[in-house]
Design a protein around this nucleic acid. Structure first.
Lengths: 192, 192
DNA sequence: CAGGATGTCTAGCGTTGCTAGGATGTCGTC
DNA sequence: GACGACATCCTAGCAACGCTAGACATCCTG
């Protein structure tokens, strides 16, 4: 339990995070198909096997990036929700923030919500930040409505669909604002 | 221009389709990650290079599968839409049919709407069956409403989100029916 | 200072998508 | 019917992939 050991562990933890951020940067710059273990190793200036001493495999690295993303998304949505919760404006703000997040960090978003994953959603083992992000949607609906979780699921599904279809060029990305307005108009508790 | 030549071309066309259906079956049975050029070649009882005399690469095979799927989806949605178009029931029927299609042919659905593609959506070069499928949604809204295309985009996005999030285990698949009901209630022209 | 644990690298395995080049067979012409 | 031209198909191989075994170096401990 020497001082050296502590330093080692600290360095190891730093390198762990370095791998995660390097994977994320590489993915954001060139897409996930460009993130190979060789390029990643080169980028962190270690050899390939070092990656495997930190993560069980490439999937685990992607998962680590995704989990980092959940925290950022939760924070981003929370910042966007106005303090005075006029319900419809709150929903609009949160939805817009969600689409912003997806558009500005497409690779991160893919790691979180598109790539195959074994992260548990809506489950006891769900990462707390992920649950927190989802709750930002739930909180946009009336607390006394028993179906607000259902509402949140559908709104989230719609936003996710808009995000991925737009990102993959399947719907024109310049109509996103209009679609957002329409979605919120239809889903907010206070119609009109 | 001999008879033999005609037979050759006929055989070639058959083999072309054989490759497509083999790829699709393999994907439906074991997922797209199991569809390798070697396994596909083995399945059609030819060597690998034969695939490349029909398609420019693996992506082109996936695209061909997807395009087949567009036709089937359009037909499936059209069958589902009732002749007497009570608007809300029509929308409900088409939406349910869409989700059915996605759940029952998940690999085909992925080829069409998830995997990277260069198929043109909402464009002059859009495959007609794809446009026809989209129009089944558009037709669920009042013809005099200039924004019905927008409505259709958002409904489609929501359904797509529900389909992929459920398929990848990110929302529980047994809530799909409830979500569908809620979606249609909020989006149909005739509220209530 | 020796011995064992820890950390890191080189080298290589099996698989992937894809392609070059040779063998085989079929066709139109003399 | 024999022959050159052509089309068809396969064997063999390339580079890149995720991942791992085993050798080397380095450091802490007794």
């Amino acid at each position: 339990m020497s001082v050296t050991r502590e330093r080692r562990e600290r360095e190891r933890a730093q390198r762990h995070q370095l791998i995660i951020t390097a994977a994320r940067e590489l993915a954001e710059a060139e897409g996930w198909e460009a993130v190979t273990t060789r390029r990643l190793a080169e980028r962190v200036e270690y050899s390939q096997p070092v990656l495997y001493s930190h993560f069980s495999g490439k999937d685990a690295i992607v998962r680590a990036v995704a989990i980092d993303g959940f925290g950022e998304l939760a924070a981003h949505l929370h910042r966007a929700r106005p303090a005075d919760p006029e319900p419809r404006q709150a929903l609009h703000a949160v939805c817009r923030a969600y689409l912003e997040f997806a558009t500005e960090r497409p690779a991160l978003y893919q790691a979180m919500f598109v790539l195959p994953t074994d992260v548990k959603f809506a489950h006891a083992e769900t990462p707390p930040p992920l649950r927190a992000a989802f709750d930002e949607f739930v909180s946009c609906f009336r607390p006394d409505d028993a179906r607000r979780e259902l509402f949140a699921e559908v709104v989230w599904s719609a936003l996710h669909g808009m995000a991925v279809l737009s990102d993959s060029g399947r719907i024109p990305s310049d109509g996103q604002e209009e679609r957002l307005d329409f979605l919120v108009a239809r889903f907010s508790d206070t119609p009109g």
